[in-house]
Each structure stands twice: as structure tokens, then as C-alpha cells.
Design a protein around this nucleic acid. Sequence first.
RNA 1: GCGCCGGUAGCUCAGCUGGAUAGAGCAACAGCCUUCUAAGCUGUGGGUCAUAGGUUCGAAUCCUAUUCGGCGUACCA
Length: 548
Amino acid sequence: MEKDYLLGIFKAALSKLGIDNIEDITFESPNNPEFGDIATNIAMQMARELKKNPRIIAQEIIDNLDYNKDVIERVDIAGAGFINIKFSPVFYDVLFEKIRQSGIDYGKQKIGNGIKVNVEYVSANPTGLLHLGHGRNAVVGDTVANLFEWMGYDVTREYYFNNAGNQMNNLGKSIYARYNQIDNPDFPLPENAYHGEYITNIANDLYKSSPTKYKDLEDDSPLHAELIKAGEVWCFEKIKNTLKKLKITQDVFYNEDSLYTEGKVDEVLKTLKEKGLSYEKDGAVWLKLSEMGLDQDRVIVKSTGEATYRLPDIAYHIEKFKRGFDIIVDVFGADHIATIPDVMQTVEHLGYDKEKISVLIHQFVTLTENGKQVKMSKRTGKSYTLDDLLDEVGEDVVRFFFIMRSISTHLEFDLAIAKEQSDKNPVFYLQYAHARACSIFSKANEQGVSLNNDYNYKLLTDEAEVNLIKQLIKFPELISISCDKREAHILTEYLKEVASAFHKFFHNCRILDSEQDIRDARLQLVEMTRIVMKNGLTILGINAPEKM
RNA sequence: GCGCCGGUAGCUCAGCUGGAUAGAGCAACAGCCUUCUAAGCUGUGGGUCAUAGGUUCGAAUCCUAUUCGGCGUACCA
């Protein structure tokens, strides 16, 4: 906000010096407050080109700078040629009044302008329960989708799944074996069987309703398909239930199989052949990746006639383009990394803009407790599922822990801290700020005091107040940066700073027992903080409690 | 071998497009509740930013090499 103003006056000054080709000027807050509120290194950047001492350039710029003395208190040169700017406290009050007028929608933006965005996440096949890695994937994807929504995009949340193929057959066989084991404990488990306890649960459920139907089937019995279907339905119900606990609802469940039945895969295959991007060898169809700038060619149709996963992946991404999405976001775990360049290059060579796709790859999650890795749930004695974690620490803590770090770093999920219902747990620090703001209002209410929009915003000049205002002003920009980078932890870090500034303000400035005009102004500040915390937590998918 | 991610305080991690004295939380130590929520605030200690070169007025940030850890490298998904 204040940067727009500065950009204007600096461009005008440069223009007077005969420089018009500067597009953007960087302004940033110096670490040390003595250097002012905001600084630019433009003079140093120009020094190279102009072959002049940066301090001299800085002086020339300042001499030509035409600014409002009510807004800017002082402008000076420091160090190698920084231009430091100090705003008057009143300027921040004016900015505060501006943002205050946006009220409860503060932070919502229209930049997205209804552009269609597809965010695909979770996308776990219905062969089992969600584990911790899926949890990180789910929360990262859902939060990025929220960010896009707040930026004014038209967001579709999508789940891509495959209910056919080897893994599903495997699921069916595993259920079949467990079912038969009920009456015949020696019945063998298939090779590569799924060993989770849930398989037994599914088998038990089937046994209860039909105790003989699936006994000793022939290999080609059509009933095997029913077993697979039963497994799929059971798993999906569990998965959706787990996601619901995380407050995640997706709009589209896209079935990979439809790419085959609707001929999309064949279409792609045909186009690849026409464009000379594929060839046949040893009875298989190969993708000519070596001609698309990659190391080696890969099989897309096996000699058995089945497609490998690359082919439907390519078809699926093309479908996303055809469905009219301008921004496509995929969220994957680090183990999925291999296929991405292949899909991207092929899509590009088929005439689609791969720059529209952003692939978010998050690193793995390790669950620890007191420095030791936790693999099994103490409660169930089985391997730790996302459900176990949710039951143990609650959805707010889970969501917060999964987005408080950059996605590119390995995430250590410390159960001991997560379980702690105290100040050690960072999620409470944010929620507490919100609850505190709310409690001030309930106290005010008791005293018959309410928010007065006729307040005098120029009274907010205490250091703690100005500091809080400075933080609050940044909210929309931080949402925007967070969305552009598809990194929710940037917003998380910001909210910590807002909370910190608010706690300091609360500590230093009395609110309800101050003089009436000061009280009114401060209450407005409390209200804006409450809104920023509430909206910020909403984007993160975390509850903002009114009491703690 | 090759590709991707990471190596920053005792621990877990921030550090945006290179910028002025490298930050936070936890842990350790010392303070602040007769006053709007102490799940808070204030202060102290703690760092060869993995290593070595390079680019630059200026590097935790960019480049190269080395090293350690994770993941991947199928006619599996």
C-alpha cells in the first residue's frame, strides 16, 4: 500500500533525472528500525550502469524527490547508498483507517478475477487408509486452494483416483484371503498382500452379511470384482471421513478409468504417434522423451497392451487444460517426483503451456516423540494413520503442524509438542491472540462500551500501536505472496508476527480503562487484529476460538 | 552413475527477487499477575550459516566442486 505511493514519487524523481526505463523499485523494511521504516537500494543498483558513486546518485534522487511532508518525516542516505525513509506516525494511522473500512472482508482480493484454477491433492487410491504423508499433502493442497480463493480465483478442488489395475486386484485378493481365513485359518495370503488390519475389517463386514458367498472362488469368478468394489467403497468412506475431520471437502473426484472409457487415452496415443513423439519397439509403445530434451525414452504401453502410469497422467493433464483451467496445481509427495518431467515435457510438445502447471512437491513427514521416531500408534499398536493422529491431537494442531514449514523441507512432527495443551504449542499462540481480542470485546460489552466508528485514528501513535498497524497493513500482500509462491507457511509466519505485535500492544497499552477517545481508537485496533487473525486462521483452515 | 529436496543456535525451523549488527519458538537462566485472558510480556546466554573456491561495492542467499542426510531413477502407481 505504502509502496505504491513510494514507487510513484521515486519514478517521478528518476524521470526528472532523465531515467525512464526503471520498471520496478525494491522497497523493503530494514532490520534495524533506526534506519527508518522502509529502504531502497535503487541507487546502488544503478551505480553499476551509470558508473557513478551510489551515494551521489542517492543524493540526486533525494534532491528531486517531491513528497508530502505529512506522509514522510525524513529521507536520508546511509551506508553504501541506501535511501532510508521514515514515515510520520500519522501516515500509518491514515493507512489503518483505509484498511479498517474493508471490515470483515479484509484480505479478500480480486486479482484472480474469476480465472479458473484446479488444485489437485490427496489423490490417494482407495486401497487403504490415509497415512501421515497424505495428511501433509491434503493440508498443503487445501490451504493453497484457500489462498487462491482469497485472491479471487475460481477454484476447483480435485481428487484423482484409480480404481482399476494391479493395486486394486491386490486389494481384492487380500480381502478374499482374509474372508476365507475366517473359516479356514490356513488359507494363504497372496504375494504382495496388503497387511493392514483394515483388510480384516472389510472381510469381517462381508462375512457378516454373506458368510458363504465368497468362499473358494474360481480364479475367473466375477465375484472377485465385487470384493474389489467392496474394498473400494469401504476405503473411500474412511478416507472421506478422515478428510472431513480435517475440514476438507473436494469438488471433483476424477476417476482415472474414465480417461480410458471416454477415449481420452487413445486420443493422446494417436496424437503422439501423429506428431512422431512415440514409436513401437519390442512390442511396446515408447515415448520419445530423448527428443523432448530428457535422458531416456520410456514405455507408455506395455507389450501386454496395458498402459503404464505415464500415459493416463499425460491424458489427465491435457483434460485439465481442455476443461478450461488456466492454472493447474498438483500436490505430490517426494516419492512421485520421477514422472513429473516426463509429463510436463510431453504436454508441452503437444501444444499446451506447461508454465500454467505448478507441481508442488512436499518432502516426507517423520513423526517423533521426545527425539525418537514413532512408527506405531501406542493406542492401537498398529502403524500410525492420519486418523490416529487426528484423534490424538485434534484437527487444528494437525493442520497447523503440516503447514508451518516450507513444503521443501523434511517435516518433523513432534507428537510431544503437538499433544501439549500449553504455551509450548505454537498453534495456541495464534488462537490465543484471537481469543484475547474477543475477550476484550465481551468485557467492553459488559461495561456498555461498543465499537465507535467515529473514532479519531490519529491517536494511535504509541510505538506498540504503530508497530501493530504496520503488521496489519501487510495482510493482503502476504496472502498474495503466499499464493504466488504456493507456500502457506509464509502466511503462518506472518500471523505469528501479528499475534506477537498484538500481545505486546495488549501488554503496553491499556484499552478499556483509557480515556474515551483513546479507548475508541484502540478498540478499533483490537477489532482489526481480530479480523486479521480470524481471516488468517480461516485461510489456514484452523478454528479461531473466542474463548480459551 | 544420474535427477530432485535439504544441511543456519543444544532441538525444530524462518530468512521473500544478494544488502546494513543472521532471526523465531522450544530448551537453560533471571524478572513481571490487588489492574481488560500469565496459553502473555521483558531480559541474559548460545552461531566458522556443512566445506572449499568463484562472481560482486556487498553472499546464508547466485555459480562450481566436495561432503553428509532424505527421496527417486521399472514394460509398478
